[in-house]
Structure formats: C-alpha cells, structure tokens
Amino acid sequence: MSIVETPLRRAVRAQRRAHRARTTTITLVLVAVTFALFVGTMMIGSYVLSPWEVIGSAFRLTDDPSVDFIVLDLRLPTAATALGSGLALGVAGLVFQRLLANPLASPDFVGISGGASLFAVSAILFTGWGAVTTSAMALLGALLASIAIYLLAWRGGITGYRFILVGIGLSQLFTALTGYVIARADLNDAREAMTWLVGSVGSAGPFELRTLLVAVAVLLPVAFVLSRRLGALELGDDAASALGVRVERSRLGLLALSVVLVALATAAAGPLSFVALIAGPIAVRLVGNAASLPAAAFVGAIIVLTADLVAQHALPVALPTGVVTGAVGAPYLIWLLATVNREGRGG
C-alpha cells in the first residue's frame, strides 16, 4: 500500500518543518547573543576597546601588543571561564532535570556541588598547594558525591525521587562539614574559601580553564548525541527499554557526563548557584523539549556572561559572579517552583 499524500499528513509535515525552523533560528540567535556577550565583556573595562580590536586580538587576526595584553592576558581568561562554565552548567543542569524528571533537580541542590565545595575548600585550607589541587579536589569531590548518591539511592534501580532526597540529605552533610572546615581555619584562608564558595569567573587559573574548555569541547557534542536517549528515558524505563535503550547504562552515562561537566565548571569558577537550575527551563520554554540541550548550553553561557558583566561593571562595588546569579536566581526560582507545581511536575 503506497503512502497517500493526505491534507493531514501535509499539515503535520508543515507543522514539523516550521517547528524545526523555529528551533534552528532560536538556537542560532542564542549563539549570536552568546558571541556578542563574549566579545562585549572583553570590550568593557577601565580601557574600552572596539569590537574589532577584541575579535582581532582574541582570534589572533591582528598583532597589536598593547591590545593583546589587555585582551589575551587580562580579559580573555575571565570571559572564557564564563563561557565555558556557562555552557557546561547549562547542559549538565538540563540533563539532570530531564533524567530525574523534575525541573528543580539541578546539581546545585542534590549534593554534587556540595561535594565539590567541601573538597575544594578543604584543599584551599589544608594543603596550600595552589589552584591545581583545588580543581582536582573539586572534581574528586563531585565524583565521590555523585557515586555516593547513586549507590545510596540504588535499590534495584534508581528513581528520581530517591536520588533527589538522598542528594538533599548528603548536601546537608556536606554543608555542615564545609562550615566546620571554614570555622577551623585561619581567618584569611577562611575568607579565601568563602570567596571561592560564592563562585567567581575571575579566579580561574590557566590549568583549570584549559581543562574546562577541552572538556566542554569534547563532552558537549557527546551530550547532544546522547540527547535522543534522554528523550527515550523520559518516556519511562519500560518504554525506553522497549525502544532498545539500555536504561541503566544510558542513565549512568548521562549522569557521569553531567557530573564531570559540573565538577570542571565548579573547579574553574566555584559553585555558581542557580545557573544549572535556570538554564534548562528557559531553553525548554524557548525551543521545546526535543532540541533543548544545545539551547540550554547557550542560555547557560548567556546567564554567566551577563552575570559577570553586571557583577564587574554595573554595580558600585565589584562582586563575585555567584552573588549576582544567586540574587537573580532566587526570584526566578520561586516563580519556577510555583509554576511547575501548579502544572503537577514538581514531584
């Protein structure tokens, strides 16, 4: 039986095409905005540069030593950290939210950032071996925390419900221990640790930055490829295995991927609160669920870049980036909580 071209089929196809075109357009707009902000944060400062100077210098097109110094040595590391951590947090947050089937289950709240914080703060206060150790420890902490949560929530499988609650319990434990470590320390070290805890994109060293950017370049495409499986997993475990997805393995892979992204972003910029939480729902609202991962990455980057601009230039005193994301995140969060719960998706 040949396929008949009915008006309905045509309408459905036209609809799909329109949707895809819209998704592509919006994602491209997000990319453009991200790029504009990335260039923009490097233009502003005590010495204002033109966009062409910034682009020319950042991409090694021109050769002007004074501009190169300002752009490459002073402003590019911060901007690149903001970009990288934003992309990583946006993707990781959305993967968590979709895997755990709860729009509020971002890695900030379920103990991953808490584990990273505890280990990084301990490294700052006890080893004094510098930034490399701090990032390595943040990575280790996030990995250990997520393994602990995964194992403790395991009972013949993982449910989002248990994972979230176990994560919240552990994150309280990490908070208590972090507080203890800070209370024990010498005052100046404690200040350094607390600054780190708020999160700032200006503090990343070259090593963490390079690790983060490499990881983002490698893992983001992997995440985009895996997002089909994510869609299948969202149908429920039974439906997903009926579709030929190996449920536990896919879930573990996706979780591991986002944990690594969160850990590296945390290592570079500290636990920037709310970015992972906010980026996902905004992206889903813009482009719908199916194609939301790339959009979430760029929304995350836009949030961190904007927060950095505001924190550095718009306020009377320069503040750590995390204060701005926290302050903007809180009201949005309340609104988000209210809407998702009204729609019955809160858990």
Partner: peptide, 19 residues
C-alpha cells in the same frame, strides 16, 4: 526541593552580604 532551593538562595545572599 523547595526548601533546598530557598536555602541555597538565602545562603548565597547571606554569604554575599558578609563578604
């Protein structure tokens, strides 16, 4: 989750103020 989320935002406000 609502509690954890609200605590997290309050925590960042608290820390930001004391910095």
């Amino acid at each position: 989750l609502a509690g954890a989320a609200v605590s997290a935002s309050l925590y960042s406000v608290t820390t930001g103020v004391t910095m």
